[in-house]
C-alpha cells in the first residue's frame, strides 16, 4: 500500500530528469501515471515502461503543451487511457532556459511564456474542470524555481515566468475553493540530473559544478530529481491536503543563504 494508491497522475515534460523522477516516485506510491513530452522517442516510451514495471499503469502522451489545443489533446489522450485525472504536475520546460537580456528577443520571450506560464495555466484550468466534473477533488502542482525569488545573471525571462506561477497557484486556490482541489508550487534549487537507481538515468548536459554548489548551498550538495519528486509526493498525498496556494522551496537552504548572489 502506498501514499497514492489508485490516483491518476499526469506529469508534463516527464521523459527524463525531474519530470521522470516525479513520474516514477508517484508510481512507486501506487499512482497510475501518464508521461507527457514533446519528444516522442524510445526514451519517452521507456519512462512509461518503467512505470508499468512498478505494477501500476504507465502511459505516454506525446504533445506540445505550450498551446491550449496542444494541452487539450494531451489531457484528452490521458483521460482516454485513465478515465479520470486526480493529479496534474506542470513540469515541462525546454532546455534553453537562460538567455542574456539583450539576446532575449520576442520569439524567445513568447516561447518561454507560452510553455511555462500559459501552458501551465491552461493545463491547470482544463484539469480543474475535469476534477470538478468528476467531483473527486484533485491536486495541481507547478514546478517553479529559486529563480522566482532572486535574480541570477541571464535568467530574467525564466525567472519572470516562474515568479508568476507563485501568484498563479494562489489564484487557483482561491478560485477553486469548495472543490477540494489544491494548487501549489515546488521551487527547486540547483538540481543534478542524476536519477536514482531503477529510474534509468538519462543525462544530457554537464553536471553541476560542485565547488560552486559547496560555496552556496548549506546542504553542500546539489539536489536530486528525487528530492523534488518527494516534495510533489508530499503535496499530492494526504499528508499535504491542507497546503494550498503555497510554494515550497526545495533548495537545500540556497535561498536562505546570503551567498546566493555573491
Amino acid at each position: 500500500m502506498g501514499l497514492l494508491d489508485g490516483k491518476k497522475a499526469l506529469i508534463t515534460g516527464a521523459r527524463k530528469g525531474i519530470g521522470r523522477g516525479i513520474a516514477l516516485t508517484l508510481a512507486n506510491e501506487g499512482a497510475d501515471v501518464g508521461v507527457n513530452d514533446i519528444v516522442d522517442d524510445e526514451t519517452s516510451r521507456r519512462a512509461a515502461e518503467l512505470i508499468s514495471k512498478r505494477g501500476v499503469k504507465g502511459t505516454f502522451h506525446a504533445g506540445d503543451v505550450s498551446s491550449v489545443a496542444g494541452i487539450n489533446a494531451v489531457i484528452d489522450s490521458f483521460l482516454e487511457e485513465h478515465g479520470q485525472i486526480d493529479i496534474l504536475v506542470n513540469n515541462a520546460i525546454f532546455p534553453d532556459q537562460s538567455r542574456p537580456l539583450f539576446d532575449t528577443d520576442e520569439v524567445y520571450w513568447d516561447r518561454m511564456m507560452d510553455l511555462s506560464l500559459k501552458g501551465y495555466f491552461f493545463g491547470s484550468q482544463r484539469a480543474a474542470k475535469e476534477m470538478i466534473a468528476q467531483d473527486s477533488g484533485g491536486r495541481i502542482v507547478c514546478l517553479a524555481s529559486v529563480h522566482a525569488y532572486v535574480a541570477i545573471e541571464n535568467w530574467t525571462a525564466y525567472g519572470t515566468a516562474k515568479a508568476a506561477l507563485r501568484r498563479m497557484v494562489k489564484g487557483l486556490a482561491v478560485d477553486l475553493s469548495g472543490h477540494n482541489i489544491t494548487a501549489n508550487c515546488i521551487a527547486p534549487g540547483a538540481i543534478s540530473n542524476k536519477l536514482p537507481e531503477g529510474y534509468d538515468d538519462v543525462i544530457d548536459g554537464p553536471p553541476h559544478d560542485s565547488a560552486w554548489l559547496e560555496a552556496r548551498i548549506p546542504a553542500a550538495k546539489g539536489g536530486l530529481p528525487s528530492d523534488i519528486a518527494n516534495a510533489v509526493l508530499y503535496l499530492t498525498s494526504d499528508l499535504g491536503q491542507y497546503v494550498n496556494g503555497e510554494t515550497i522551496l526545495v533548495d537545500g537552504g540556497m535561498i536562505a543563504s546570503k551567498k546566493m548572489t555573491d
Binding site: K170, G171, G223, Y242, V243, I248, L249, V250, D251, G253
Partner: peptide, 17 residues
C-alpha cells in the same frame, strides 16, 4: 524532506492566498 532547509511551509488551506 531531505533537501528542504531554512524554509517555512505554510499549511493554511490557502488562507494567505
Amino acid at each position: 524532506g531531505d533537501y528542504v532547509n531554512g524554509q517555512t511551509i505554510t499549511v493554511d488551506g490557502g488562507l494567505l492566498s
